[in-house]
Design a protein around this nucleic acid. Structure first.
Length: 893
RNA sequence: GGACGAUUAGCUCAGUUGGUUAGAGCGUUGCAUUCACAUUGCAAAGGCCACUGGUUCGAGUCCAGUAUCGUCCACCA
């Protein structure tokens, strides 16, 4: 037997062992011995490609690797699928920061393509770094399946997802108040905002007979509503809707009194004016009362012409001058210099958020839709549900278990307060929104003329068959229309069929125009649904139309037709003679609208109806054919693609074997700080798209802090660099220190002493093995079988009993996610029961049984410890003479 | 303002469904050293389990309240 060094050397061992594992192929579940075994899946939370490994990564890698290695040894087909996240805003902000620091440039000094190349280059090198660092921790992940949120498969998943949500009316475009970052020039989600305390002067201004208080006088130019609580006795004499003329910053304005209970009577004077364009509360209030909204500040944070002489100035700089003017006009009553309030800033890049009303894409969390195919416990296939209800249901039913349990409450609370999710971002790096627009620069003026009634069967479609000629009554209707329109005004006339519509058109236009017939127009048919309810009609978007067509088929045809018109007839006036179903289709589609009562009224009428077509939009997974289509410049919130992670990584939307085998996944292990950002979004996306849960257990870990419970930060100089730690103490020591003695969900204080202690433990194992090997050298039969009970000494029995108890405890604790307890059990047994006691006693015994118990017990210890300290255990396993890898040894029972 | 946690040895933390004498790591003190390991071993000191009540045969554990600390969410015109 070769002489072993006196101390374990992790640096020499780890890379060699890792390569051995890689060569074995067992990280890939397809290569594991038992292909019929139950799978066990964990999707790795993809680290951002923004930087290098920190202890947070080390923690999640450790926990997940422990779970995976444990289950793999239990014989499960364990898949740990790794990947990285493009982290749109974070990555772009990082590159922009470097660019500005090194070259003094902004992204607007480059073309979109040039800039993206820079970001991609950075992302690629950052990716390589972080992946190699994760490997150094011993991660037994299946690198052959590695995914990236921005790679081709994942991008297709994103586009497919967007399109389906759009088709279901879940994704919509709307003008709403959003968090606008003037610095990065993008919207930011509610979750990405951090609040900072700021001491600022608080101005009391005279607003006619009232005094209003504000910290932001620069937003007040357009204020023309003054709001107070309906129960406020001080302002009893003013009625809701009263108008008052008063002198304001840039001259006289007429103010309107609004009474609303949202006002806090105790705060300030109990009266405020509102700025709906730049404040979420004011926006809601304005929406409630139907008030005007006016933009004061532009996208760069500069004042607009409404500010008069201050127009064009940046709000920060303008404030002092504005206050001077207010003072000069005698409108300043007093100033409170000791006022603190909180300002919203962007977590990434730190710009001060200036709310704006902007056209953005949203996910509607309250809209009911039909979940066609549900495998969920409390939701039946075909049931109508909202995303909120879905998200709640799967946790309430216990299908998804959150550990520690109290986070369920936090989760429910969050859902109750959830607003529609703004998913569009005005940055460049990320998934571009799969919507294309074709614009008609001059616009096409449509006039819709409903054709007269025809003969034939009047079934549920009220106007008969489209190939039937007009009735006498139909001719009367056509003549009536003729008197209502001036035929000379039109450049072009389309009819939707060759019979009654063409006949109607001929009556109206005579020989003035050649009547064009377009087959696509004829085939566009939403039916005459005037007599139905809107909810019934809207259903067709999901279930298809009475004639068997899907909404998407009809829509694509309409878009194709309109796109052709834009190519050929921009600036023209076109009359379309058709039945109401056609018009409805056109209008609804090019405006991206749901059916409304308003549509029904219009289409029930027989009067000509005008519409200006300026733009048509197409939503699809690929760009539409034809010229001049412009893709939406916005990108998607990074969490949109992350939300698809558990199934996009398995190849969705293709129906892959992997998807069938490994989904739903077993465990989602991540930090509690991204429960809302990510975990909730995965539940939303997966239940919606797959009708099943993304994972059975959510296992949340805490934040790693320093020994004094302080957050690690560069400025405090208390950052523990995991790579430095690995170099000094070994990956096993770091892993063990991270999970030892900290319960799930709690923050983890990590001191260097703790890691050092764990290195001692690895070394202890090394020397235990050295001793056992020397002691058992004479054992001829290395295939140990437990000796008969009768021959065993009291010491032998005692240690075997303890081993048995430890094995049970470790297994039980691992199965129930009590990793820290499992670690302590095995630590205690290996060191204080086995080494301190039994091993010492064994020095006085030379019996065959003792040697066998020594050898057997050590084997079991290495197995139990392998998930926690994979490197040293694997190395010792080999030194004990085993040919097969420890990583696929059978877990002790 | 709302929600959720925490309070156990000098320090950092465990303690699963209530059940004998409350545990670990580090630190402290004493002893040991040709021994697999000084990156060690043996031993010891150190706790009114925040406080006050309650439920129970029995409470660190369950309930109510108080205090202190922390986290998250909303929001301050």
């Amino acid at each position: 037997m070769p002489e072993l060094p006196k101390a374990y050397n992790p640096a020499e061992t780890e890379s060699r062992i890792y390569q051995k594992w890689l060569d074995s192929g067992f990280f890939n579940p397809d290569n594991l011995p038992n292909q019929k075994a139950q799978p066990f899946t964990i999707m790795m939370p993809p680290p951002n490609v923004t930087g290098t490994l920190h202890v947070g990564h080390a923690l999640f890698v450790t926990i997940q690797d422990i779970l995976i290695r444990f289950r793999r040894m239990q014989g499960r087909r364990a898949l740990w699928l790794p990947g990285t996240d493009h982290a749109a805003i974070a990555t772009q902000a990082r590159v922009e920061k470097d660019l500005y620091k090194n070259e003094g440039k902004t992204r607007f000094d480059f073309s979109r393509e040039e800039f993206l190349k820079l970001v991609e280059k950075f992302a690629q090198s950052s990716h390589d770094t972080i992946i190699n660092q994760i490997k150094r921790l011993g991660a037994s992940a299946d690198w052959s399946r590695e995914a990236y949120t921005l790679d081709e498969t994942r991008s297709l998943a994103v586009r497919t997802a967007f399109k389906k949500m759009y088709d279901d009316g879940i994704v919509y475009r709307g003008a709403r108040i959003v968090n606008w970052d003037p610095k990065l020039k993008t919207t930011v989600s509610d979750e990405e905002i951090v609040w900072q305390e700021e001491k600022t002067p608080f101005y009391y201004l005279k607003y006619g007979p009232f005094t209003i208080a504000t910290a932001r006088p620069e937003t007040k130019f357009g204020d023309k509503y003054v709001v107070m609580h309906p129960d406020d006795k001080r302002y009893k004499k003013y009625q809701h809707g009263d108008k008052i003329d008063l002198e304001w910053i840039n001259g006289p304005v007429t103010a309107t009194i609004i009474k609303d209970p949202v006002i806090d009577m105790e705060f300030g004077t109990g009266v405020m004016t509102i700025t709906p364009w730049h404040d979420a509360v004011d926006f809601d209030l304005a929406e409630r009362h139907g008030l005007d909204k006016e933009q004061i500040i532009d996208e760069n944070g500069k004042l607009l012409p409404i500010a008069g002489e201050f127009a064009g100035e940046h709000i920060k700089k303008a404030r002092a001058a504005i206050i001077e003017k207010i003072k000069a006009k005698g409108l300043l009553e007093k100033v409170d210099e000791n006022y603190t309030h909180r300002i919203a800033t962007n977590q990434r890049g730190g710009g001060v958020i200036e709310p704006q009303i902007k056209e953005q894409w949203f996910i509607d969390v309250n809209k009911k839709f039909t979940l066609a195919d549900s495998k969920l416990k409390n939701i039946k296939s075909g049931q109508k549900v909202s995303l909120k209800e879905l998200m709640k249901s799967v946790v309430e039913s216990g299908e998804i278990k959150i550990i520690p349990e109290h986070f369920s409450k936090v989760y429910f609370h969050w859902i109750d307060n959830l607003r529609d999710w703004c998913i569009s971002r005005q940055i460049w790096y990320g998934h571009r929104i799969p919507v294309w627009y074709k614009t008609a620069p001059k616009g096409i003026k449509f006039t819709f003329l409903r054709h007269g009634q025809s003969e034939g069967n009047v079934k549920d479609i009220g106007c008969g068959h489209q190939d039937d000629p007009l009735t006498n009554h139909g001719r009367e209707q056509a003549n009536k229309l003729k008197n209502q329109v001036d035929a000379k005004n039109f450049d072009l006339v389309f009819s939707s069929d060759l019979s009654r519509a063409t006949e109607t058109a001929q009556i109206i236009f005579g020989n003035l125009h050649k009547i064009k017939f377009d087959k696509r127009l004829r085939e566009i048919d939403f039916g005459d649904l005037s007599h139905k309810k809107t909810t019934e009609i809207d259903k067709y978007r999901v279930t298809g139309f009475p004639n068997g067509e899907t909404y998407q088929q009809v829509r694509d045809r309409v878009i194709d037709f309109l796109s052709d018109l834009i190519d050929k007839y921009d600036g023209k006036k076109i009359a379309i003679v058709a039945h109401s179903g056609v018009w409805k289709a056109l209008e609804i589609i090019f405006n991206n609208k749901n059916f409304t009562e308003e549509h029904l009224k219009i289409h029930a009428a027989r009067e000509p109806f005008e519409y200006l077509l300026e733009k048509v939009s197409y939503v699809g997974t690929e760009a539409p054919k034809g010229k001049d289509w412009q893709q939406d410049p916005d990108t998607l919130d990074t969490w949109f693609s992350s939300g698809l992670w558990t199934f996009s990584t398995l190849g969705w939307p293709e129906k892959t074997k992997d998807l069938k085998t490994f989904h739903p996944t077993d465990v989602m292990e991540t930090g509690y700080d991204i429960l809302f950002f990510w975990v909730a979004r995965m539940i939303l996306m997966t239940t919606y798209f797959l009708g099943e849960i993304p994972f059975r257990t959510v296992f949340l870990h805490g934040l790693v802090r320093d020994k004094d419970r302080q957050k690690m930060s560069k400025s405090k100089d208390n950052v523990i660099d995991p790579l430095g730690v690995i170099d000094t103490y070994g990956a096993d020591a770091l892993r063990f220190a991270l999970i030892f003695s900290t319960a799930a969900g709690n923050d983890i204080p990590l001191a260097e002493d703790k890691i050092k202690g764990m290195k001692f433990f690895a070394n202890k194992l090394w020397n235990i093995t050295r001793f056992v090997l020397v002691k058992t050298e004479s054992l001829s039969n290395k295939k140990i079988k437990l000796p008969d009970d009768k021959k065993l000494s009291a010491e032998d029995k005692n240690i075997l009993n303890k081993l048995n108890a430890t094995t049970k405890a470790v297994t039980d604790n691992l199965e129930n996610f009590r990793l820290h307890e499992a670690a302590q059990e095995i630590y205690q047994f290996a060191w204080h029961d086995f080494a301190d006691v039994y091993l010492e006693d064994s020095k006085n015994s030379d019996s065959e049984e003792t040697k066998q118990v020594l050898f057997f017990t050590l084997e079991q210890i290495l197995k139990l410890l392998h998930p926690f300290m994979p490197f040293v255990t694997e190395e010792l396993w080999v030194l004990m003479g085993h040919k097969k890898l420890l990583m696929i040894e059978k877990w002790p029972e």
